[in-house]
Design a protein around this nucleic acid. Structure first.
Length: 564
RNA sequence: AGGGGUGUAGCCAAGCUGGUAAAGGCAACGGGUUUUGGUCCCGUCAUACGAGGGUUCGAAUCCUUCCACCCCUGCCA
């Protein structure tokens, strides 16, 4: 409903932009979201998307979607498509500004030639190992390459031959000539171009030399006249190179880089490398497995873009390392879904109930609101009959204190239907309770009585003969450890995968749920929010549990257990 | 001869041009309403701002020393 109820505080980036605008440094704001198409977007990217596109929206500027596709060995079209879908789903629009770093290969090449002409770049024939060895260490300076002082002409010719494919992969690279003794390792003659004789997902075989990130990114920003180039903290050291390149090339537009802290979240892992591993090794069903922190996974789980955006707003943008409690995400999801998800009934762990004084062949239909606090959502009809399913957890033979549900002799309300009283239980050969025998009070039709009698418990239910059998997929956090990446104890993050992160149940749902479309998100009353999954069939629909409702009864039980 | 960053409650995070109350949210804990033990409402929750010194009538905010944590030695981004 409401995106914000408090004025968002100005984070440091907004403060910088405010100052830039006020001081006349810029007259507008241009940002960009620059993913490499080598994996699916996750909630950490969502933070960046909300920041970059959000800034553009707030300041009346624009935000480009630019694929940073300079490494053809890792990038695929599948990823560029999923990324576009995810950004759109988040609710953002790049308009005309869909760009690819590969669109600039020719210009980038010319800039490299320009650098060579200036004597600021050279072709290095050292092997990768030699380059590494000569880079020095964090505390010792590196050594100049023996090829560092090649003439401009020779470098020009060599670079042309690199481009022409005359030189072998790994034979040489183009390097910037900066300072092998720089305390900032990034500036020790960084590689600008390498030879890769592989096809690129967009340029095909047009190129066999590919520019490196540091050379590409700043110039792409400049070409697009990006004003504020926002990235994560691990690029802080690279800013010196970002600025160096632009200082040599002197493009018409001069972007500035700013860094913020990436998102970390409890009980989850947010590095592309780990996520790929989970997918490739089959720990999850795919990138869009509902347990994945990917945007596509969350979408399939039933998370709404609004919830995700609110979350990104609430976590803020700063420079301190952080570990956001996943409970905040869950809160944002519940908050959004509470307002908009229709209420329906489904039983996830069924126990049969027979209303012994209800006529065997009788069926009543109750018209129930789809949202008790929002009449505009309308109603649906729900059949009631002698045989019902209720939640197994809603019955106890021996009721603990404060247990207001079914137990022998207790009367409860079946939501919007009748008061029923538990009279007896039926057991199987193993002594397990398999059925409850109840009576109902015909005068309590609708779920209330004129005598004002107190009924403390209200239960959800489904008429057995009308129920739709469905598969319920109950998801829980993927990891059991708050920070799965904390491997100081010698463990691997995969050692902390939650074996119960997915529980599959056969559920019985009210008939209305047999008619809804894939992606439909609703609340199964008293249980949680559920989203219809595409895996289902008309005979057996599948519902994913997005998130449970807050459960204060569980808390009470936990507390009394602890005390007892 | 290392460099670049960051430290405000259990978790995020404002405040940083110094001025008696250190925002807000999550979590937690009380209470009220309720035909969802949901929602909603009300209340509690940092004499304290990584630590020590200093400047000042007054400092989370300025100076200083120290400590802790994160990032950087790809022909990845």
């Amino acid at each position: 409903m409401s995106e914000t109820n408090t004025a968002p505080t100005r984070d440091f980036i907004r403060q910088i932009i405010d100052a830039d605008l006020a001081g006349g440094k810029h007259t507008g704001v241009v940002t960009r979201f620059p993913p490499e198409p080598n994996g699916y977007l996750h909630i950490g990217h969502a933070k960046s998307i909300c920041l970059n596109f959000g800034l553009a929206k707030e300041y009346g500027g624009r935000c480009h979607l630019r694929f940073d596709d300079t490494n053809p060995t890792k990038e695929e079209t599948e990823y560029v498509e999923s990324i576009q879908g995810d950004v759109r789903w988040m609710g953002f629009d790049w308009g005309e500004h869909l760009h690819y770093a590969s669109d600039y290969f020719e210009q980038l090449h010319d800039f490299a030639v320009e650098l060579i002409r200036q004597g600021k770049a050279y072709v290095d024939h050292q092997s990768a190992e030699e380059i590494r060895a000569n880079r020095g260490t964090l505390t010792e300076p590196g050594k100049n390459s023996p090829y560092r002082d090649r003439s401009v002409e020779e470098n020009l010719e060599l670079f042309a031959r690199m481009r022409a494919g005359e030189l072998a992969e790994g034979e040489c690279v183009l390097r910037a000539k900066i300072d092998m003794a720089s305390p900032n390792v990034v500036l020790r003659d960084p590689t600008l171009y390498r030879i890769r004789k592989v096809s690129h997902h967009r340029t095909g075989d047009a190129w066999c030399i590919y520019p490196m990130y540091d050379f590409t990114h700043c110039l792409s920003d400049a070409i697009e006249c990006v004003t504020h180039s926002i990235c994560t903290l691990e690029f802080e050291n690279n800013r010196a190179l970002y600025d160096w390149v632009l200082d040599q090339i002197k493009p018409a537009c001069r972007p500035r880089q700013y860094e913020f802290a990436r998102l970390n979240m409890t009980y989850t892992v947010l590095s592309k490398r780990r996520l790929i591993q989970l997918v490739k090794e089959g720990h999850v069903s795919g990138w869009d497995d509902p347990r994945m922190p990917t945007i596509s996974g969350m979408r399939r789980r039933g998370v709404t873009p609004e919830a995700l955006r609110t979350f990104c707003e609430r976590i803020g943008v700063a420079k301190a390392d952080n570990m956001v409690d996943v409970a905040l995400l869950e809160f944002c999801i519940r908050e959004d879904l509470n307002a908009r998800a229709p209420r329906v009934m489904g039983v996830i762990n069924p126990l049969k109930v027979t209303i012994e004084n209800y006529p065997e062949d009788r069926v009543e239909e109750f018209e129930m609101p789809l949202h008790p606090e929002d009449e505009s959502m309308g109603t649906r009809k729900v059949p009631f009959s002698r045989t019902l399913w209720v939640e197994r957890d809603d019955f106890r033979e021996e009721a603990p204190k404060k247990f207001h549900r079914l137990y022998p002799g207790n009367e409860v309300r079946l939501r919007y239907a009748y008061y029923v009283t538990c009279k007896d239980v039926v057991r199987n050969a193993d002594g397990e309770v398999v059925e409850l025998i109840c009576t109902y009070d015909p005068a309590s039709r609708g779920g209330w009585s004129e005598d004002g009698r107190k009924v403390k418990g209200t239960l959800h239910w489904v008429s057995a003969e009308h129920a739709v059998a469905a598969e319920a997929r109950l998801y829980d956090r993927l990891f059991t450890k708050e920070n799965p990446m904390d491997t100081r104890d010698g463990s691997d993050f995969k050692d902390h995968i939650n074996p119960d992160s997915l529980q599959v149940r056969t559920a019985y749902l009210e008939p209305y749920l047999g008619t809804v479309a894939d992606g439909y998100v609703c609340q199964f009353e008293r249980l949680g929010y559920f989203c219809k999954d595409r895996d289902g069939t008309p005979e057996k629909p599948v519902f994913n549990r997005t998130v449970t409702l807050r459960d204060s009864w569980a808390r009470i039980e936990r507390q009394t257990d602890a005390k007892g």
